[in-house]
Amino acid sequence: MNWTWFHRLGSPPHIYRIAGTLTPWFAWPAGLLIVAALYGGLVLAPPDYQQGEGFRILYVHAPSAWLAVMIYGVMASAAAVGLIWRMKVAHAVAASCAGVGAWFTAVSLVTGMLWGKPMWGTYWVWDPRLTAQLILFILYLGYMGLRAGIDDLGRADRASAVLAIVGVVNIPIIRYSVEWWNSIHQAPSVMKMDRPSMPLDMLAPLLMMLLGFTLYFAAILLVRLRAEILRRERTASWIREVLR
């Protein structure tokens, strides 16, 4: 087995260069997909038979909610890799994730509330999804708070990595408990998003949005990662050559 690729993954100058070349390859398809999905979602898709035009909030709510959860997963995986193999670049990835994740968790909360008003008649219902998302937001805040609270970078990296892993073990339990709690206390009405069959002209823009947002996150992550690497490798001589 040839492991050089793995060792190169841990080499900051290598990653810095690769991230630079890859960024446009994620950014442009992401932009195109999102614009196309906007047209498909706002114009081409037919109004929903229950929610009318209001269901179109789905096309920004669902991708943000997906990013919020996915980014936490990426962050925890990177943190675990950094903790287990002592890979500095992995910690830089985890550090770059948190801010973006918190942003999109907030967006999913705000869009969920804006969707809730016409559907439930109130901006906030203790719906299990919204509640779990709110707890996720607090988890992100805690992660960033811990990182900011420890001065030594190596220690901040590892302590926050432990927290991210503890969080990722807990998130399914939290989601389950919140759903269980909700099933007992019966919220007034539950938003039905998981209908068995969504017509293709409704589903296609959603899938395009999900893919577009994922690629968008990848592009943002790469740019943030480059910044993070520069900041961490402050004394390295390779930076001098890169910045020519």
Binding site: G52, S64, V107, T111
Partner: peptide, 19 residues
């Protein structure tokens, strides 16, 4: 948007701002 404009466009705007 069939009366949903005051909820729909802010939602899109917030997402756009975040992006």
């Amino acid at each position: 948007m069939d009366g949903y404009a005051i909820f729909l466009w802010p939602a899109y705007l917030v997402t756009l701002i975040a992006i």
